[in-house]
Structures are given as C-alpha cells and as structure tokens.
Design a protein around this nucleic acid. Structure first.
Lengths: 248, 248
DNA sequence: ATTGACATTAACGTTGCGTAATACCTTATA
DNA sequence: TATAAGGTATTACGCAACGTTAATGTCAAT
C-alpha cells in the first residue's frame, strides 16, 4: 500500500526531487521511512500532495501552502480570495505592459517612417529653397536625376537604400573623434562616394565636394546627420574635402 | 558632468546595488572608473540605463535586455512582439487560475451548506427510523422540542449554532487520546451539556446519558462526529457516561 | 554474488538584487 | 593638516523552487 518516491512521482506527475524538496522544507513528509532512509508515502500523503499541487497551480508559494494545509485556523477561503486579488493585480500589470508594448511598437514604426522621410528629405534637393543653389553648384541634371531616382523606387527599395545609408553614418559615428584625414574616416567617405555613384549617378569630384558644402548649410541635412553623433556633419564635410583633394 | 553611483541611483531611482549588479553582469558598465575603483557614469550611460529600465518594466529578464539593448532596432521590435506573446500567455494562465479559484470557492460554499445540513441531520432525530427508539429512551416531548427549535431558527441562527457545535467538537478532537475520565475531556462534556441545555431544553442527566448511547448507534451521527477525529464518538459516549455518574 | 534499477545525501546553479561586514576613498571642517 | 563623516568597493550569504550532476548506498532478481 505504501509507495516509494518513484511511484508517487509517476503517479502524481512530479519529480522525485520535488518530493525530497517538500520533505526537506517540511511541506510533505512521508508517513514513514525505512531503516535505510527510503521514503514511504501513504495514501493520505498522496491526498495531501494533491492539495499542495492544487494550491501551487493557483500560484501560491510553498510557504503559504504549508500554512494553508496544516493550520486549521488559516482560512482557506480567505487565502483564496486574497490570491484572487493578487492575480487580478498581476493581470492588470500585464495588461499595462501589453499596452505599453503596443504603443512602443507603433511609435517605433512611426519613427521609422519619420526618419525615413526625413532622411530622404535630406537627400531630396528639389525642395524650393535649395533648388536654385543646387542647380548653380551642380548643374541642372544631377539634381533632377537624383530626385527622379528616389521617387521611382519602391518602398522596399527605399528601405534597403535607407539601411545602407544608415550603416554608413553609424560607422562614421564610431570615428567621431578621429581627424578628417584619418584612414578610417577616409575609407568611410569612399564608401559614401561609391554609394552615391551606385545608386544615383556618377558624381564628379567637384560635384561631390559641392555636396559636402551643401550638407553644412542645409539644416534639414545637418539635423538628420547630427542624430548619429554631434559634430558629424562638420567631420563629414571636411573629410569629403580631404577625399577630393587626395584624388586629384 | 560624470556622476557616481549614489547620484545616478537617486536620479534614476534604482539602488546602488543594482548599478553594481548591472556592471557585474556586463549590462551597464560605467564609462570610466577612477584609479580607486569608483564608477563614473556618463550622460550616455544614463540614457542606456533608462532603456534598460524600460525593458525591465515590460518584464524582460536582464539577459534578454542585454541582447536587446546592444542590438539594432529591428531586433527590438521582434523582441517586443515575442514578449507580447508571452505576456498574453501569462494573462491567459492567470485568467484560468482566477476561474479555478472562483469555482473552488463556490464549491466550498456548497460544501459548507452540505455539511451544515448533515450536521443538523445528525441532531435531528425526527427521522423515521430512529423516531421510535428516541421516543422510548427520552420520552416524547424532548425530541419534538428539539426539532421544532431547529426548524424555527433563522439561517443566521443556525449558522451560529453550527459554529459553537463545531468548536466543541474541535476541542474534543484535541484530547482524542485522553481518557474519558480526564479533567480536560470532562470539561468539554460539561460544555456540551450546557450547550444542549441552553439551546434546546433542560435534559435530565438520564436523558443526557441516553443521548450518548444513541450517538453510538446512529450512523448519521457517528459519521458526522468521526470527521473531527477517529474514535471520537466512543470517547464522547464514554465521557458522557462518566459525566453523568459524577453528577449523581 | 553480481547486476541493474532505484534511493539517498550533498552541493552548485538559476534570477535579481537586499543586506550585511569590512576596508579603502574623498571631502569638509576644525 | 589631521580627523571625522560619509561614499564606495569588494566579498558573500539569502531568498524560491526545484534541476542537475556526482558519489554512493539499497533492493530484488538472476
């Protein structure tokens, strides 16, 4: 009639370790033990174990369960009601957390849209106030070509473009404190030059130089770039000058 | 501009222990440390800390946060969505637990009604099979009187009665292993005698003795009393005999 | 007697810090 | 400038509920 740990464990669905643990903390001691120290559980032990698991499923900590099960004065109903309250609090917390996550994700998506737009606004020089200057510096076609290209791209392509753009500036941010002449910075500038040439049109070195100057003056652009690190625009502009000089 | 642990802790609202912990596990290391080992936090450190706390509030474990914080933004979105799923699962679990509790409490209330009824059934000797015997032993009136009394009581009164009844038997259960002659047991029997006299009718000592015998024979009664402890009926019956003998 | 299945105790690992205990560092005041 | 007072640093244990080896003992059957 009495059962050993393995049998009890399999029967009820707990681990033998759990049984030993419950014995250790005095939550459920087997009715008797053999001289060799084997734990022997009675039928009543099994019933108690069921009770314990019941309260455990409801989220009671073992200490509480110990009180509930063994002290008749401790009112089970009250304990259950208290636990109910706690559970409802937990649920409310979780609801809040879920809402926060939803908000955050929405916000992130919004930010991405925003920054993407801003990013392309920084690249899109057809905006009236700068159109004339750009024309003067670069000649007509290049600007038109650039804008047309962006507009013709699918959302996906724009995203991909945006990512490469982002990567380059993130890299540059790492060398924020380096000089414009440093190899590291120059390597990134070359990447940037190649990026523009690949995606838009072949810029002449002079045009590229002019672009650098424009960056410095265009607030939409500086604001955008400075997000990656303070002083980045200046570094970039200077580095572009150095780059052009080196190529000549 | 740099801040030491205390200042950061007060500013952000965490403990210095937490800051050291985060440093230990590599979640947030101060930008620099003095030669004496003092941690010095930069503004950027503060921003990161805010981020960490944000994710912590959403229930992320620190290990996860470590990954999330130092990874690009699209991973953050994925992590948030995953966490959302987990939170919803948790909420479902909690809902289940609450439902279980509600069911259990209802069930308990039902049980209480049940046992109350059974309790009074044990006291209610108008049941046909025992009516005659009771009449023979006690005479007619007493039984009628007792039953009439119970029926005339409000639910509230019945509950109160039930509680006193319960208390007495719980006390008796404590002395389960004592002899019927012991002072402790006799004191409880006197309480029981007084209880009956107060609430029903003045029993003569002989009637009280007869009641004790009846208990032993009536299965409804024994079953009820044995719930408080095995062998209680016999102890009680014997103790009632002793009580009566002592009074004579 | 040996073996294989089952049991035992001991002790570390996990999560996120709280809470000492003890010793060095910094700074303000005398 | 010495000293007191208050910060900070480094261990290291504690908590909850077991999981997980590791080393070793017991039981039952061959």
């Amino acid at each position: 009639m009495v059962k050993r740990v393995r049998e009890v464990a399999d029967l009820i669905g707990v681990s033998t370790r759990t049984l030993r643990h419950y014995d250790q903390i005095g939550l459920l001691s087997p009715k008797e033990t053999t001289s060799a120290g084997y734990r022997l559980y009675s039928e009543e032990n099994l019933k108690t174990l069921q009770q314990i698991l019941f309260f455990k499923e409801l989220g009671f900590p073992l200490k509480e369960i110990k009180k509930i099960i063994y002290s008749p004065s401790f009112n089970q109903r009250e304990a259950l009601l208290l636990q109910r309250k706690m559970l409802i609090e937990k649920r409310n917390n979780i609801d809040k957390m879920i809402k926060t996550i939803d908000k955050t994700i929405k916000h992130m998506l919004g930010e991405i849209e925003m920054t993407n737009e801003e990013k392309f606004e920084g690249i899109n020089f057809s905006h009236k106030a700068y159109e004339q200057e750009a024309r003067i510096r670069w000649g007509n076609q290049s600007v038109e070509h650039l804008n047309a290209k962006i507009k013709s791209m699918s959302k996906e392509e724009q995203k991909s473009l945006s990512k490469r753009w982002e990567t380059i500036f993130n890299k540059l941010a790492l060398f924020r404190d380096y000089s414009a002449e440093s190899q590291d910075v120059q390597a990134i500038i070359k990447e940037w030059y190649d990026f523009l040439n690949e995606n838009f049109k072949n810029y002449s070195l002079d045009e590229f130089y002019g672009l650098g100057l424009l960056y410095m003056e265009d607030e939409r652009f500086t604001k955008n770039i400075e997000q990656y690190g303070a002083g980045l625009t200046r570094l970039m502009s200077e580095a572009m000058k150095v780059f052009v000089d080196n190529q000549k």
